[in-house]
Amino acid sequence: MMKIEHTDLSFEVYKRLKTMILANEFQPGEKLVQEQIAALFGVSRMPLHKAFQMLENEMLVENLPRRGFYVTEIDNAKLLDAFECREALEGIAARRTARIISERELEDLRALFKPFVGKKKIDFKKYIEADQAFHNAVLQISGNQILQKFEVVKNITSQTYRGGLIRKPEETLPEHLAIIEAIANRDAALAEKLMREHSVKTQELIRDKIRKE
């Protein structure tokens, strides 16, 4: 059922594995057994190895000499650092996006969260995908060439999803919708403010965890 048929197999494997890692289907520190994953997706080891390299570039997996690939472990201190970076970078992106977004791009943003509005039970994995797609889209739509090409930005975004979602979808969904509406109203200042607050609330939870450690 999970077998992949696509011309760019390595990219498809990369996307599937990334989603699984971010949804905690592979635990931090867990070894990725190439033979098992190749059989799961119905691919050879060549595209799988390329997919591992892409994940390694995003700091989601690490290649330990003579031991193989493992899901990267990340502690709360590093996670906090990543969210602080996201606060600044995505705040800039939201401000720029509000100024230049097209109607088609706006509809695409709204469509990401439409399946979850009014639902009592939200599919956790699908929400993670929508959440990440939203933040990546804002960076892309912003038109800032540095943000779009600066590879560390993508890495930072990936790192903050490592433990899944720190806050529940029921809490963050209204925040995402409010950011989209600020963007729709071309209110650049409000879009930046709401995007930063969205990150800060998560940072506060992480700081609480650090203090309790």
Rank of each mutant, 00 (worst) to 15 (best):
Q132E: 14
M20D: 12
E103H: 11
K120V: 11
N63I: 04
I122L: 05
K120I: 02
E103C: 07
A93D: 03
I100Y: 06
A130R: 06
L80I: 02
F83M: 03
E56H: 14
A39S: 12
E90R: 06
Y70A: 01
E90Q: 07
G143I: 13
F83W: 10
A51M: 13
V138D: 09
E25N: 05
K15L: 12
I74G: 00
F150D: 06
A111H: 04
D123L: 01
L55M: 13
V43L: 13
L40F: 09
L60A: 10
A98T: 06
K126M: 10
T19F: 11
G42S: 14
A137W: 11
E84I: 03
E30H: 09
L60K: 10
E87N: 07
N24T: 09
K125T: 13
F113N: 04
I141N: 04
F69I: 01
V13H: 07
R95P: 01
E90L: 05
I141L: 07
F116E: 02
I146D: 03
E87P: 00
K120E: 15
E84W: 00
A82I: 01
S102D: 11
F41M: 05
Q36V: 08
S142R: 06
N76C: 00
I146S: 07
N136F: 08
I101G: 09
K154P: 05
N76F: 06
F69W: 02
L112Y: 03
C85G: 14
E30L: 01
V153Y: 02
K50F: 15
G68E: 06
L32D: 03
V43E: 12
V153R: 00
L89E: 01
A82S: 14
R86L: 10
D123R: 03
A94R: 09
R86E: 10
T157F: 00
N136K: 14
F116D: 07
V33I: 15
R16I: 02
L22K: 15
G118M: 08
F116A: 05
K15T: 08
L89P: 00
L32R: 04
K78T: 00
M59D: 15
R66F: 10
K154V: 01
I92E: 01
G118E: 09
T97A: 10
A93T: 05
V152A: 14
I141M: 13
Q148H: 04
R66P: 02
L89F: 03
I122S: 03
G68I: 01
K18M: 14
Y14W: 15
F134Q: 11
T157W: 00
R110F: 12
I21P: 06
L109S: 03
K114F: 06
K114L: 11
K78W: 00
E87V: 00
P47Y: 10
F116R: 11
